[in-house]
Nucleic acid binder design. Structure first.
Ligand SMILES: NC(=O)c1ccc[n+]([C@@H]2O[C@H](COP(=O)([O-])OP(=O)(O)OC[C@H]3O[C@@H](n4cnc5c(N)ncnc54)[C@H](O)[C@@H]3O)[C@@H](O)[C@H]2O)c1
Ligand SMILES: NC(=O)c1ccc[n+]([C@@H]2O[C@H](COP(=O)([O-])OP(=O)(O)OC[C@H]3O[C@@H](n4cnc5c(N)ncnc54)[C@H](O)[C@@H]3O)[C@@H](O)[C@H]2O)c1
Lengths: 226, 226
DNA sequence: TAAATATTGTTAAAAAAATAACATATCCTA
DNA sequence: TAGGATATGTTATTTTTTTAACAATATTTA
C-alpha cells in the first residue's frame, strides 16, 4: 500500500461502509471469491467504479477469479482502521444512548466502550452493558486519568453544544454526535454529526416526487418573491 | 417551480437535510435573513454551491439581502415533502425501535406513527408513546385495514429480510431499515438503509490516517497476492 | 439622488467522478 | 498445451459536480 491515505476522497470513503457491510454478509456464505460484477449487483455501484475504488488502495483482486472475500474484508477493515484498538465513552444514557451501548456495533469497528455518563440521578449507578453509569460531574476527572480516543454524544439538543465544549476542553479529539443540532468545535477536533433521520428525509423526498410533478402542492404561504 | 423534480440529483438531495437542520436552528435566532456566505460558514459548503443548489428548485433569494430564513425553511420542507402527511408503522420495539418511537423526529417530517409491532410476548400490550405494541402476527390484518405509507424496520438482522418480505407482500412501498444487513426488495419498493454506524466508520478512518501514513500498520495476515 | 456596497442567479471554466474500453493475466477445458 | 473464457487493473472518454466570475439588481449611505 504505497498510496498516501491522508486524503481518501470523501466519495470513496462513503462507499467503504457499504462494501464492508456486503463483504461481512458474503463472508458468511460458502463463497470464497466475489467479482466486481457481483458486488455491483449487490451494492448498486457499477463494477467499473468498484474496481476503481479498490485500486485506489492497492491490488487486491485475482484475474479471472475476482476478490478473495475474506482478504478484501480484512483490507477494508485496515483501511477504515477497525483493526486498531480505540477507547470511546458515551455521554447521555437515555433511549438512544442505551440502544447504542447495548448494540455493540462499535466493537467490530475497534472501539471499546470504557465509560458511560449521564446527568440524571435516577440513571447514575445503573449498569448497562456491564458499565455503571457515572455522573457527568465526574467527566473531567475521568478524562484526566484515562486516555480516551472518542466520545459518543447522545444528550438532548439543548445540552449538546455545552457538553461538546466540555469534552473538547477535557482533551477529546473526536466526537460522534447524534444531537439534531450542528455543534461547533475547534479545527483540530473531528466531529461526525450522525443525522439519524436522513433516511426518513430521503424516503419522504422520493415518496413526494410524483405528487410534486402533478403539482398537487400549494406552494404559497405568503412568501412570494419581491 | 417549473423544474421536473422526478430526478433531483442525489448529491443535491443529500445536502437538503443539512440546509434543513441549519435553517431550523437559524429560525430560532433573531435573524430574518441569511446570505449564502453565512450558510457556507455554517454548513461547510461553498456559497457558490449553495446558491446553485437552491436555484435548482427556484428563485428564493433577495438581492443584496440574502434568503428569508423562514420562507427558505418552508420551501425546503415542501421540496422534501415534509408538509405532506404520511402514515408510518414501526416493526421491532426493542432498544432502537423504542428510542425512535419516543424521539418524534418523524413528526416534524410529516410522518404519523400509527402502529408498533413486535414478536416478543413480553412487549406486546405495552404502551410506548401512546401506542400499544401489537403482535407481529397482526401485521397483515392491520395493513389490509389501514393505509400505511412506510415502515420503520428495527428488528434483529436475522429477521430483517423475512420481515421486509412480509411488509412488501402486504403492500408496503417504502421501508426505512436499520438492520445492519442489506435487504432485497422488488424494484417498485423504496428502501433506505440507515447505516447508523457510518459516523463511527468515518471517525475511525480519519483517526487512523496518521497511523497508516506512518506505516504503523502490519498489513499481512496471509493474504499476499498471487 | 448618486455612488458605494452587498448579494443574488447564472454563465463559463475547472475539477472530480463515473463509465466505458481494453490490454493483460489467469483459469479452465478439451 | 493451445484456445476460449473470465475478470482484473488501468487508461481514455464522458458526465457530473464544483468553483470562479460576473452581470444584474436591490439596498444603504452620503
Ligand atoms: N432517540 C432517537 O431516535 C433519536 C433520533 C435522532 C436524534 N436523536 C438525538 O439524540 C439525542 C438523545 O436522544 P434520546 O432519545 O436518547 O433522548 P433521551 O432524553 O432519552 O436521553 C438523553 C439523556 O441525556 C441525559 N442528559 C441530559 N443532559 C445531560 C448532560 N448535560 N450531561 C449528561 N447527560 C445529560 C438525560 O438525562 C438523558 O438520559 C437527542 O439530541 C436527540 O435529538 C435521538
Ligand atoms: N441499537 C442500536 O444502536 C443499533 C445500531 C445500528 C443498527 N441497529 C440495528 O437495529 C436493529 C434493532 O436493534 P436493537 O438494538 O433495537 O435490537 P433489540 O434486540 O433491542 O430489538 C429488536 C426487537 O425486534 C423484535 N423482533 C425480533 N424478531 C421480530 C420479528 N420477526 N417481528 C417483529 N419483531 C421482532 C424483538 O422482540 C426486539 O424487541 C438490529 O438489526 C440492529 O442491528 C441497532
Amino acid at each position: 500500500m504505497t498510496k498516501d491515505l491522508y486524503s481518501i476522497p470523501d466519495i470513496i470513503m462513503s462507499r467503504l461502509p457499504v462494501y464492508y457491510q456486503h463483504l461481512k454478509k458474503l463472508k458468511e456464505s460458502n463463497k470464497t471469491y466475489v467479482s466486481s460484477e457481483e458486488l455491483a449487483k449487490l451494492t448498486g455501484f457499477s463494477s467499473s467504479l468498484i474496481r476503481k475504488d479498490l485500486s485506489y488502495f492497492g491490488t487486491f483482486g485475482r484475474k479471472s477469479y475476482g476478490y478473495d472475500i475474506f482478504c478484501l474484508f480484512q483490507q477494508i477493515r485496515i483501511i477504515m482502521g477497525f483493526n486498531y484498538n480505540k477507547k470511546i465513552i458515551l455521554i447521555g444514557a437515555g433511549h438512544l444512548g442505551q440502544a447504542l451501548a447495548y448494540n455493540k456495533g462499535y466493537i467490530e469497528r475497534g472501539y471499546k466502550l470504557t465509560a458511560v455518563f449521564d446527568k440524571n440521578p435516577k440513571l447514575i449507578g445503573l449498569v448497562i452493558n456491564d458499565l455503571e453509569i457515572k455522573s457527568i460531574s465526574d467527566l473531567e476527572n475521568y478524562l484526566s486519568e484515562n486516555k480516551v480516543d472518542a466520545a459518543i454524544l447522545t444528550v438532548p439538543e439543548a445540552a449538546a453544544q455545552k457538553t461538546a465544549d466540555r469534552l473538547v476542553a477535557a482533551g477529546i479529539k473526536a466526537i460522534w454526535s447524534f444531537a439534531e443540532v450542528p455543534i461547533k468545535v475547534p479545527a483540530d477536533v473531528l466531529v461526525e454529526e450522525q443525522l439519524i433521520n436522513e433516511g426518513l428525509c430521503k424516503l419522504s423526498v422520493k415518496m413526494n416526487q410524483p405528487r410534486i410533478n402533478k403539482s398537487e402542492v400549494e406552494e404559497d404561504f405568503d412568501c412570494e418573491q419581491k
